[in-house]
Design a protein around this nucleic acid. Structure first.
Lengths: 224, 224
DNA sequence: GCAAGTCTGTTGGATTTACAACGGGGAGTG
DNA sequence: CACTCCCCGTTGTAAATCCAACAGACTTGC
């Protein structure tokens, strides 16, 4: 319980806090540090966990196994990131995913109940943690919601226009850069790269938009 | 500020609280009640709102408009339900959706900052609200995550097995009922109803599962 | 019993996508 | 310049999806 200072200071949950403050908070929250060997399971699907994890070192995989045993990679966790937070904050809901150590890893476990039952007056930064946790959940929510919006579109073409439209709104301009390569964008939208490229070409030919590599310009076609 | 007692008592955020307790909390939180005419906008996309809404009466639509003006229905809000909570809890993020009154409606607005900065000792139920808000976000997160898992599958067949597998795990049995009609399930998975029906028939013919209307039985094919 | 309506499974043709493979254009290297 | 590597666009074929239409099973109301 000594050397995780840098990771925690850079993590979203504790960012901007002094090391002593963090140390005091961890005691107040009853945080537990545990080490895991490579390949070992941290959480099994079906368990009920009221603790959320913060990875201190190593790397984790969040995976999902269906009824027939097919594995599905959900996320890769890097140091400083949270995992299993949605399940920990939903009392009684059993885990729908498993978490495995990709390398030898150290994890800080935080009990959600102890986070939420504030030591009334003592901790000023305790309520900051609650606020951060809320923000983390809300932002994840927004990201999921946005992705769902695009993926709900039936055709590749509509998924593209939905995504590009959102990017334009985010940048406040019809001219903008996207943060994905073609392959990454295809994976994000759940379509095939070459088919997506073809759909992009068709949109360009029809005058709906222009693009060069990662720079896009949307054309207003409302008055036409 | 008198007659919303029943709606609030049955809402997730305030459930199980006494009317007097709720009344006191609303004052403590600086809750504002406002009325809206049919068709009027409660929130516009692009605004930055730090308040979340709780519908007291009427009905609302959460919609999304893309760059070319195409409307997309995101959700329909019934009395007692929250809306715009993810945006309110993500400071600085502008709204990606608009909210319109489908009927004449009354809304209770709650400032997230005042929810999070607990009046230190006074309110015991104040921290209960924080806890509920966290749970609401976490559960929505789980629902989104589950839907994304299914929708990320490329083919209709894989979307179906992903969904049915999750239902079986939830019920703890390979024999279970689903809460959707065929059309609703198709909409949920983002596919076409008849194509989905055909895929279901094929899965049955191949011995992967059995079904009658809304009752399904999955077959273990691992040892075959 | 009969009629109307709803839900579901099935089928055929038009459309779209997935998949594999290829070629061109940059960036970087020697 | 030659060479390699990586990213992107294009193309052709096989496969899957969408769409419309229809038929059977079931429910509901008269």
């Amino acid at each position: 319980m000594k050397e995780h200072g840098i990771v925690l200071q850079e993590s979203f949950l504790f960012s901007g806090m002094e090391p002593e403050e963090i140390e005091r908070l961890l005691k107040c929250l009853g945080a537990q540090e545990r080490a895991y060997r490579k390949e070992s399971y941290l959480l099994h699907a079906g368990d009920a966990s009221a603790e959320l994890g913060l990875l201190l070192s190593g790397a984790l995989l969040v995976i999902q196994e269906d009824f027939w045993g097919n594995r599905n990679l959900m996320a890769r966790i890097a140091p400083g990131q949270l995992f299993a937070e949605s399940f920990a904050c939903s009392p009684g809901v059993p885990l729908g995913v498993s978490v495995v150590a990709l390398e030898e890893s150290r994890v800080l476990w935080l009990d959600v109940k102890r986070i939420l039952t504030t030591c009334p007056t003592a901790c000023a930064s305790h309520s900051a943690i609650i606020c951060r946790l809320l923000m983390a959940l809300a932002e994840k929510n927004l990201r999921f919601n946005e992705k769902l919006t695009h993926m709900s579109q039936r055709t590749t073409r509509d998924k593209l226009t939905s995504f590009l439209s959102a990017q334009a709104q985010r940048n406040g301009s019809s001219s903008f850069d996207i943060p994905f390569s073609r392959q990454e964008l295809a994976d994000y939208l759940g379509v095939e790269r070459s088919a997506m490229s073809a759909a992009l070409g068709r949109l360009r030919d029809e005058g709906v938009l222009m693009f060069q590599r990662n720079h896009f310009v949307l054309h207003d076609t409302s008055g036409m």
